[in-house]
Amino acid sequence: YETDHQDYCEVCQQGGEIILCDTCPRAYHMVCLDPDMEKAPEGKWSCPHCEKE
């Protein structure tokens, strides 16, 4: 199925295993987040940009 999420990391602009924000189209590698994540979040997750809003 098609999503509106970007298929690359917002921080480093590379693809790969990325996690998707449930609020906006941004996507991130877990290691590119500050602080980085050990494992993928369970349930709904909002990226740092959305958390600030």
Rank of each mutant, 00 (worst) to 15 (best):
L20Q: 11
D7H: 02
E17W: 03
Y28V: 10
S46M: 06
E42Q: 11
M30L: 07
V31D: 11
E2W: 15
K39N: 05
E2N: 15
D7P: 04
T23P: 00
E53W: 13
K44T: 15
R26V: 06
Q14T: 05
D36A: 09
E51G: 14
C21T: 02
K39W: 07
C50F: 02
C47S: 00
Q14V: 09
S46V: 09
D34C: 12
D4I: 09
K44E: 13
G16S: 13
E53D: 02
E53A: 06
V31M: 03
V31K: 12
H5W: 05
L20S: 11
D36K: 13
L33N: 02
I19E: 09
M37T: 04
A40N: 03
K39D: 12
A27R: 07
I18N: 04
M37E: 03
P35R: 12
A27S: 09
E51N: 03
G43K: 11
C9H: 01
E38V: 10
P41S: 10
R26D: 05
V11N: 15
M30V: 08
D36Q: 10
E10P: 07
P41H: 03
G16F: 02
C12R: 00
V31P: 11
C21R: 01
A40P: 06
Q14H: 06
P25H: 02
C32P: 01
E2S: 15
C12L: 00
L20R: 13
E51A: 11
P25Y: 08
H29V: 00
H49G: 09
S46N: 12
E51I: 04
E38A: 05
Y1E: 15
D34H: 09
W45D: 04
H5F: 10
G43Y: 06
W45G: 12
E42Y: 07
R26P: 03
C12N: 02
D36T: 13
C21Q: 02
E10R: 11
D34F: 04
T23W: 04
D36M: 06
C21D: 02
C21W: 01
Q14W: 04
V31N: 13
E42S: 08
H29T: 01
R26F: 04
V11A: 09
G16I: 09
M37Q: 08
C9T: 01
I19F: 03
D22P: 01
V31W: 05
C24Y: 00
L20F: 09
E53Y: 04
V31L: 15
C9M: 02
W45A: 11
E10D: 08
